[in-house]
Structure formats: structure tokens, C-alpha cells
């Protein structure tokens, strides 16, 4: 009994040490050799924002009726970038570290968590930028902003769940890489990032779109941080019990993916 306790404790300690070092390494390596370095983690979403802003807000006049439409769009892009960064990055996360996996025994989930954490740090920096823009745009913050961390936990669990599934499945089926690229492209349009939920879209379609967890999270984040005029589940369904559907989906999917990852991780060393 004592021994089991000791070894669990040791394993936990080892995971902590390794996780910390892998996050540090990933951050150091990310912008290695680029002149602007870390600035890119800010510049990239801002540049994409500038393009989308001119195309959709200025020329096509989408979302004109929404207060603070620029910040509203920027927040959506930042969340989407975070989602893409973790999930697309995770596809090769296990296969790409065959060098480690074949030579040493360590908890494999650390690889996924490490790259997700460095994406999370990036995301938080970007959220900081959004908040600065929001202040300049005279957004009035309410007590609802305090709900933001809960939404952050939700999207992180969603991303981790998908990352666990994709990375483990990719070891066996290399098709996953191509499939996920296409799925992401489709999901971008199935998520209210560049267009706001609202009038021209039929109610039934809006009700379906909001059940997509990324859409629900983006809309809720906009609601709590930027404007209460955002359309969320409460506006689309009569009962707020519907709110539970995407959240439960995220939780169940996370648990199942983690279990799948855990089960397949035993044979990673032989397959990568």
C-alpha cells in the first residue's frame, strides 16, 4: 500500500517535471529563428482580423447592426485560432515524438497537454489584446465577465478532448490528417465567427448552429465580454435546459477521448 502510494506520487512528480520542461521548450522553439519572435503570436490573429474586417465588415457590411462589431469579430477569430491551433497541432503530436516514445516510458498525455498549454498561454495573451481593443472601443464590462473563466475551461476541455482523439487515431489511421483539415474548413463556416447569428438566417438553422460547442462558446464569450446583444442559446430556445446540451457533449466527449487515448497509448511505442 505504502509502495503504491509512493509510486503514484513519484509518477505524478515526474509528469509535473516533464510537462513543465516540455511547455518551456515548445515556447522557446515556436518562434525560433524569426525576427519578430513572440510578437507573431499577436500579429498573426491581428493580421487575419484586419483582412476579415475589411472584407466582411467594411465591404460586405456583415454584422453592421452589432455594437462593437470589430471587437466582436476579433474575439471570434482569436477563439477560432486557439481551437485550430490545438486540434490541428495535435494530429501529429504523438507520431512526431516517436523519438521519445520509443526510447523512454512516460505518460503520453503529457505531450498533448504540453502543446495545449502553450497554445493556451498564447490564447490568454490574445484575449489580453482583445480586452485592450474593447477598452478603446468603450465596451462597458458587466459582472457577467466573471463567467469568462468557466467558458475558458469548457473550450479547453473541448480542445483537449479532440486533441486526445485525433492524436491517438492518427497513429493507426493516417487519413485523420486530411479528414481533419476538411472538417476544420467546414466547421469554420458552421460556426458564427465571420457572420453574426441573427436575422437573415432562419431560426431553425440558428438553433442547430448554436448547438455546435465552438459556436456556443464563442457566442457566450461575446455575450459576457462585449455585448449582451449577442444571440445565445437563451435567445433561441424557450428553455434554458438546452444550455446543458453542448456542455454535456463536451464533458462526455472529453471523458471518452481520454479513455480511448489511454487505451491506445500502451501500444504507441510499437506503432509510431
Amino acid at each position: 500500500m505504502m509502495n503504491t502510494f509512493k509510486s503514484v506520487n513519484e509518477r505524478y512528480n515526474y509528469s509535473k517535471i516533464l510537462l513543465r520542461q516540455l511547455v518551456i521548450t515548445e515556447f522557446k522553439l515556436r518562434y525560433q529563428g524569426s525576427v519578430l519572435g513572440y510578437l507573431w503570436s499577436l500579429l498573426k490573429p491581428l493580421a487575419i482580423f484586419a483582412i476579415l474586417y475589411f472584407v466582411f465588415v467594411r465591404f460586405l457590411k456583415i454584422g453592421a447592426g452589432i455594437p462593437h462589431s470589430a471587437v466582436y469579430l476579433l474575439l471570434g477569430i482569436v477563439v477560432w485560432t486557439f481551437f485550430v491551433e490545438i486540434t490541428a497541432g495535435s494530429v501529429g503530436a504523438i507520431v512526431g515524438r516517436g523519438d521519445l516514445i520509443r526510447k523512454i516510458n512516460f505518460p503520453k498525455y503529457i505531450l498533448i497537454v504540453a502543446s495545449s498549454i502553450s497554445a493556451l498561454i498564447n490564447f490568454l495573451i490574445n484575449i489580453g489584446v482583445v480586452l485592450v481593443f474593447a477598452i478603446f472601443d468603450r465596451v462597458e464590462f458587466t459582472w457577467e465577465a466573471l463567467l469568462f473563466p468557466l467558458l475558458l475551461v469548457e473550450i479547453f476541455l473541448l480542445c483537449l478532448g479532440i486533441a486526445f482523439f485525433l492524436s491517438a487515431a492518427y497513429v493507426k489511421y493516417r487519413d485523420i490528417g486530411f479528414i481533419w483539415e476538411v472538417v476544420l474548413q467546414g466547421a469554420f463556416f458552421a460556426t458564427p465567427i465571420i457572420y453574426p447569428l441573427g436575422d437573415p438566417i432562419p431560426l431553425r438553422a440558428q438553433q442547430i448552429l448554436i448547438m455546435n460547442p465552438v459556436g456556443q462558446i464563442v457566442q457566450d464569450m461575446r455575450e459576457v465580454l462585449i455585448t449582451p446583444a449577442t444571440i445565445t442559446i437563451e435567445n433561441l430556445y424557450s428553455s434554458s435546459a438546452y444550455r446543458l446540451i453542448p456542455v454535456l457533449f463536451v464533458l462526455i466527449f472529453f471523458v471518452m477521448s481520454a479513455a480511448y487515448f489511454r487505451r491506445s497509448s500502451k501500444s504507441f511505442a510499437e506503432s509510431v
Binding site: I17, R20, Q21, T25, L29, Q32, D99, L100, K103, I104
Partner: peptide, 22 residues
């Protein structure tokens, strides 16, 4: 194990050390 050519010698010592459990 885990040595990365893009990192400095010092950084690699810490990385490899972490893999060995330090």
C-alpha cells in the same frame, strides 16, 4: 533522448534532465 538541435547546450541539459526525472 529528447535532445533538440535548435536549443542551446544548456537548455538541452535541462530538457534531457527532465526526461530522466530531474
Amino acid at each position: 533522448v529528447g535532445f533538440n538541435p535548435e536549443l542551446s547546450g544548456k537548455e538541452n541539459v535541462y530538457l534531457n534532465g527532465a526526461i530522466l526525472g530531474f
